[in-house]
């Protein structure tokens, strides 16, 4: 298997951000009720993940490391992501109102989505190259989207069933997620 495909598939399926790393659980539980919002949130996350990797990689390697303040990456990255999300929103509004309409509502939520900060930090921690970082972010974003889309289907099915009162709402959702994670464990020996 070509190396670039392995990086993407690992981040997407075997090390799925939501299902095996537990990042981005809030949108996973909050926005997965309808297929349409799951897709919108997914695309917005892929977009922001790639863009913030494009910004944080040079920031870390060409500004923080030469200055010897690489321990401040956490503060820097979160600031970059926060600024970036705002910037993306403003630019999208100007140049492509349709795309803004599609993604706009999800963008503000993404600043505090731990998957975005998580992927930037993991890229730096693992010492990935620039290209690998971007592929890893792409895979992570695709994995997030897949998890959201699949789960929105599962939720549609359980919502209208007769479940015990105590399990209505979040508890049944979490148990369903557990079963889905067991399914994804089957991929673990694949790559």
């Amino acid at each position: 298997m070509p190396a670039f495909l392995a990086v993407i598939l690992t981040a997407m399926i075997t090390d799925n951000f939501v299902l095996s790393k537990f990042m981005g659980i809030c949108p996973f539980l909050g926005v997965s009720k309808k297929l349409k919002s799951a897709v919108g949130m997914g695309i917005a996350v892929i977009f922001v993940m790639i863009c913030s990797t494009l910004a944080t990689y040079p920031f870390y390697h060409y500004i923080l490391v030469p200055l010897g303040i690489d321990f401040l990456y956490n503060v820097g990255f979160i600031l970059i992501i926060a600024i970036f999300v705002q910037l993306v929103e403003i630019i999208l509004k100007k140049i492509s109102p349709e795309l803004h309409k599609l993604l706009g509502v999800y963008l503000p939520l993404i600043t505090t989505n731990c998957a975005v900060l998580g992927v930037c930090i993991i890229n730096v921690d693992n010492g990935l190259s620039f290209v690998d970082s971007i592929l890893n972010s792409l895979g992570a974003g695709l994995g997030f989207t897949i998890a959201l889309i699949v789960f929105s289907g599962v939720r549609g099915r359980i919502e209208h069933n007769d479940i015990p009162d105590a399990f209505k709402g979040i508890p049944s959702t979490l148990v369903a997620a557990a079963i889905m994670v067991i399914g994804f464990m089957g991929f673990s020996g694949m790559i």
């Binding site: 537990f22 909050g30 105590a166 399990f167 979490l174 148990v175 079963i179 464990m185």
Partner: peptide, 29 residues
């Protein structure tokens, strides 16, 4: 393993809902 995390949390939240006699919230997010 990861699956157990979701499972345990689901059970605990359901139990807390029963003990506090409160309808569990329908939504996260």
């Amino acid at each position: 393993r990861p699956a157990g995390g979701f499972f345990t949390l689901g059970i605990i939240i359901a139990l807390v809902g029963v003990i506090t006699n409160k309808k569990p919230k329908m939504e996260a997010g």
